[in-house]
Design a protein around this nucleic acid. Structure first.
Lengths: 205, 205
DNA sequence: ATAAAATATTTTGTATACATTTTTTATTTA
DNA sequence: TAAATAAAAAATGTATACAAAATATTTTAT
């Protein structure tokens, strides 16, 4: 959490967002402007703007902390698959040798580290690929979605799904071989597995 | 323009949005809260909320009416193609006979009407298909994008591209034949042609 | 006359008061 | 007791005043 020129709005936005993501504000909680204003120490005005923003990002819906259902997650992943498969095809076409080395590097790092570092490396793998879409719209879209996806899976200790890194490696090889179609197929399977894994951990709904 | 329970916010939102879409507020124009407040006859507070919303929809950027560049339009269409091709595959799988009749109906209407009615029928064709994605996220996304796409092509008299209806018909036949792959390919070509047509009409940039 | 500094003006950000609506609680009635 | 209604409280919507920041304008020095 960095603090640029901290105006009240940004402060409110970041504080509320953090509380939602780390679970302090649980899914379904009603957000009361005055309560938040008092807690954060600003007036209602910037709180409102922050809430509007979070509403647009999907983290708040109808004044309540969004609690994604299984169906919501499935929809999110449908969209995610569309974008990441597109990106991966572009990657196969346009990624430079240097970029490929960097990509490979995230896999090596994921194998040789543990805990948070693994998660960070895997995240970087996906981020690098999404960037290859060269489409700011898609990048921004996916960014928003990730917050909601995280919201759903935050209970899931940490992405420790078996085979995850192997799948990344397969995707990498397909890209390096400039086989966009195959990379896309592999990415789809990879994300479907991720979705299934997440759904399985939330038996109730 | 219908008026539900007209609160100041909605009023402001709709008025500003309309002015952007119909060109009264030209691309690049700086939006001054006080000016708008006076004109619309509400205070600055609801104006601000309306602006935030329009910012999120992409119609306003950094306090100015968004003026999409050719590149922006290309990005928009990349995203649009992704979603509509996805939708069309689902349509081929799941559309009922009744729905297919309705779809066909939009084509007949487009052939036998003129002016605004043709445009409406063509729009309905796409809307019906997008709905087949059965994914609220995609539907909402496309809806936002359409406003911006319209913003770009509003100077373009009205969608009178030759072959447009024939292409719709081809897509319809592919769907009716339950050939999702082909429907998707046809939809992609169709939208690429639309993009090209729109770009060609804006020689300057 | 030009560039820099100082000043004035406009515009946005924030707090606050009050109006309106929504939600909750209490009360009445069947 | 349960449903319906009325009263109270709470929360949101809106207007407005003032503060801070960003822009535009004038002044000054070179």
């Amino acid at each position: 959490m960095q603090q640029g020129h901290m105006n009240a709005q940004l402060l409110a936005y970041e504080k509320i967002r953090d509380q939602i993501l780390n679970g302090t504000l649980a899914g379904g909680t009603k957000l009361v402007e005055e309560r938040l204003a008092e807690e954060i120490g600003v007036s209602r005005t910037p709180i409102r703007e922050a809430i509007r923003r979070l509403e647009q990002e999907g983290l708040i819906q109808k004044k309540r902390v969004f609690k994604p259902s299984r169906t919501d997650l499935i929809h999110l992943f449908e969209m995610r698959i569309l974008i990441e498969c597109f990106a991966v095809k572009k990657a196969a076409k346009y990624m430079t040798e240097e970029e490929l080395i960097q990509l490979k590097e995230t896999i090596v790092r994921a194998r040789n580290s543990k805990e948070a570092e693994v998660v960070a490396a895997n995240k970087e793998f996906h981020d690098m690929l999404v960037k290859q879409s060269r489409n700011p719209l898609m990048i921004a879209n996916l960014d928003k979605m990730k917050a909601v996806i995280y919201l759903f899976s935050k209970a899931v200790v940490f992405n420790k799904r078996p085979m995850l890194i192997d799948e990344h490696e397969d995707i990498y090889h397909a890209i390096a071989a400039r086989d966009g179609e195959r990379a896309s197929q592999l990415m789809e399977q990879h994300l479907q597995s991720d979705l299934q894994f997440t759904l399985d951990l939330h038996v109730l709904d």
